[in-house]
Nucleic acid binder design. Structure first.
Lengths: 128, 128
DNA sequence: CCGCATCCTTTGCGATACTG
DNA sequence: CAGTATCGCAAAGGATGCGG
C-alpha cells in the first residue's frame, strides 16, 4: 500500500495524492493509459530512467491500491502483463489535466524544454 | 526552483510533475484556490501538519516557478501574503480533477476514510 | 510575524548481486 | 523474463533555536 499522508484522510485531494504519491506512479499510469497492457520489461524501457527497484515497488503499491492489475501467463520464459483496473482508468481525467497544462506551459515557456525534438511520445495521441 | 526530473523535459506530464513535485505544494495550491490570498501563518494552520521549513521551502520554489506570488506589507509587525499567479490559477483543472476523483473514491470506499466527520473543508465549496 | 540556520534522524533510491 | 535481497549513500524533512 501507498504510505499514508499526515493530512486528513477526509480531504479528497489528499486522498488522491496518497495514491499518486510519486512521479513514477504517475508516469507508469501515463504509460498504461497509452498502452492498455504492457509487460514488466516494456515498462522499464518506456518509463525512461526508472530503476527496477522503483518499478517493482511502484507496481506493488499500485496493485495493492487497486489501481493496477497483474496478469501472469504460465509460460516459459515467464510472461507478466500489467494493466490499469477500472479504478486506475478512472484517473484518466487527472492525467489529461496534467497533460493539457504541461502542454500549454511548454508552449508559452519554450525555454523550459530540455530537448528541441518534436513532441513525440505525446500523451494524447496513440503511437504506431 | 523545483528540482528537475530524470524524465524527458518534453513530456507535458513530466513537466507538470516537476512543478508539483510534493504533496505540500499541491495542498498549498488547494488552499490558495479556496482562499485567494493567505498569510504565512494562516497557511501554516490551514495546511494541516506542514512544518515551517516545508512551508517556507515550498513557497520559495513555487515563487521561483512563477506559480505563487509574494506580497509584503511594510508594516510592523510584518505582514506577508501569498496568492496564486495566473499560471498557478491555471492549474485549477488539475486540482479539480484530483478533487473529483478523490470524492468518488471516498464515496465508493468509505473504509478508506480516516475520520468519520462530515466532509467539511471541501475543496469545491468555499468556507464561511 | 515571518522567517533562516543548524543539527540529526529517517527515508528514498540507485547499484549490485542473486533466484525461479 | 521477472523479479528479490542487501548495502550504502544522499536527500528529505522534523525539531530547535536565533534574528529582522
Amino acid at each position: 500500500m501507498a504510505k499514508k499522508l499526515v493530512q486528513d484522510g477526509s480531504c479528497p485531494v489528499a486522498t488522491t495524492i496518497s495514491l499518486l504519491n510519486s512521479q513514477w506512479k504517475i508516469l507508469i499510469m501515463r504509460e498504461l493509459l497509452l498502452h492498455p497492457s504492457e509487460r514488466y520489461s516494456e515498462l522499464q524501457h518506456s518509463v525512461a530512467g526508472i530503476s527496477q527497484k522503483m518499478l517493482t515497488q511502484s507496481l506493488h503499491e499500485m496493485t495493492a491500491d487497486g489501481i493496477v492489475q497483474r496478469q501472469v501467463f504460465p509460460e516459459v520464459p515467464p510472461h507478466v502483463e500489467y494493466r490499469l483496473t477500472e479504478l486506475g482508468q478512472s484517473m484518466d481525467p487527472i492525467l489529461k489535466a496534467m497533460h493539457n497544462w504541461g502542454n500549454q506551459y511548454l508552449a508559452s515557456h519554450p525555454e523550459k524544454r530540455r530537448t528541441n525534438k518534436q513532441p513525440e511520445n505525446d500523451f494524447a495521441q496513440k503511437r504506431p
